[in-house]
Amino acid sequence: MNKNNFRKFFTTAFLSLGCLAMTPVTPSLMAQQTPANDPFTIVFLGDSLTEGYGLEEAESFPSLVGEKLKADNLDNVSIINAGISGSTSASGLGRLQWYIRSQPDLMILALGANDGLRGLSVEEMKSNLSKTIDYAIANDVEVILTGMQIPPNYGAEYTEAFANVFPELAKQYDIPLLPFLLQDVAAIPELNQADGIHPNAEGTRIVAETVYQFLLSYLP
């Protein structure tokens, strides 16, 4: 049901947007429009990058993605910012079990950065993310995985093994992968806070645009 809702939402979205000319939408998808009183719920399960560390809640990228959708006259969308600073992949499953009560249609899984920064085992992280994805799929929640990278100072071997986890999981579960959440933001001083790792308001706007564009491009 939820899988269908996921499609229904984007179908509705693009019908409203008048983007039909640009995006091919099949008649079957068009036929499954979500009723107006049944919002399409997206849960962003992540860490401080998702939470919007050091920013106002409205400046976090999930909120900005929601704003962009609303700006496109998509009022029937509910955004849940499930970002918690410092959280590692180990918390993913337990937290999803909490949010599953909100009956999300789509989960943007953006965990793993803290595992890398803390030098945790790459295998363990992969296993934790797998459990979270398994649980989402078992509950008819669509999953988009966001890739993470860690700075090169952590050592070539570790950074490579870390970065590979995300495409491997995407391939394993056949789920969409946003290659790098901080694309065009990471390592640019002007777009990051003083800690050099959390995007500032301007950087977060770019992250939101990246995620938003990916959502668009992901649609058939």
Partner: peptide, 9 residues
């Protein structure tokens, strides 16, 4: 060689 572009130093 660990101090590169993007390294967190």
């Amino acid at each position: 060689g660990l101090i590169q572009l993007g390294s967190r130093i």
